[in-house]
């Protein structure tokens, strides 16, 4: 302790430098964040109007809008959540109610590893498993199912927290009223945990919407209106990528699509973050 105090010698100068570094760093971070968002909105907001959202892309996306892209994006999300939600809900209920044994530990560990797998690797996996082995081809179904694998960890983690955060009295009280295990879970705990579930669902949707690399080799590039779930469909993020990288003169509409994507995500992450802070007691950031 003595040398700690002695080390306070050149204190004012060093403290001043530490303070300055902190303010500079923070200004840099805040400035960059605002720069990215402001740039996208500044360049893109002029491209966005009702026509942009309701007409199909023409001339490889340089002209026209993003209606077919939005439909494909919605369908991919629908497939993703239809697959991931029941599975994730079941797994989360298991983990929170029966998950203290070796099985629970194994599932948790697996999910932690799964959460770390890079998205491009999910893309590779989907390209073999769903596209080839299950024979789905480049399709909305293959893309959505691959995405479902990717969002499972965040979905399960949030949902499990919603369940395990419920007071123990709910379980005891419901048991005292004569509910069996399934009754307790489905009729008492599920409704009580519902806001947390919605938070997990919304954060999962946000995560899925932001994703690109998973979908390049699974749901594909085709930008016309999908006929069915077995048709290829191009999602919004991939549309932005393609327009900015592969289509000369596509920047204007790329920015337009980026504004739409960013606005949807801001709303989704805003609601999801608010719900999870309010109901689960801590924020979970979809990243």
């Amino acid at each position: 302790m003595a040398n700690l105090l002695a080390a306070q010698g050149g204190r004012p100068l060093r403290d001043g430098l530490a303070d300055l570094a902190t303010w500079l760093g923070v200004t840099l971070v805040a400035g960059s964040a605002l720069w990215v968002v402001a740039d996208v909105i500044w360049h893109g907001v002029g491209a966005v109007n009702w026509g942009f959202v309701t007409t199909a892309p023409q001339d490889a996306g340089r002209a026209g809008g993003i209606s077919t892209i939005l439909v494909a994006t919605f369908l991919v999300l629908l497939v993703c959540m239809t697959a991931a939600l029941p599975l994730g809900l079941g797994a989360a209920m298991y983990l929170s109610e029966y998950g203290r044994g070796p099985m629970g530990r194994w599932v948790r560990r697996s999910l932690d590893v799964l959460a770390g797998v890079p998205s491009i690797v999910f893309g590779l996996f989907g390209a073999v498993f769903f596209v080839q082995v299950l024979g789905l081809g480049f399709s909305i179904l293959a893309g959505g199912l691959t995405l479902a694998c990717m969002v499972l960890p965040i979905l399960i983690r949030t949902t499990e927290m919603a369940f395990s955060g419920l007071p123990q009295e709910y379980r005891a009280g419901a048991a005292a009223l004569g509910f069996g295990p399934s009754g307790i879970l489905l009729r008492v705990l599920l409704p009580a945990a519902a806001p947390g579930l919605v938070a997990g669902l919304i954060l999962g949707v946000g995560r899925a919407l932001a994703e690109t690399a998973v979908l390049i080799f699974t749901s594909g590039y085709v930008d016309r209106m999908p006929d069915s779930l077995l048709d290829s469909g191009r999602v919004l993020s991939l549309h932005i990528f393609d327009l900015s990288m592969n289509v000369p003169g596509g920047d204007h509409n790329a920015y337009g699509a980026a504004v739409v994507l960013l606005l949807i995500l801001l709303v989704i992450n805003g609601i999801g973050g608010w719900l999870s802070r309010r109901w689960i007691g801590r924020g979970i950031v979809a990243s």
Binding site: V29, V36, A258
Partner: peptide
């Protein structure tokens, strides 16, 4: 917000 901005953006 920075965490929520998609990679492609």
């Amino acid at each position: 917000l920075l965490a929520g901005i998609p990679s492609v953006v």
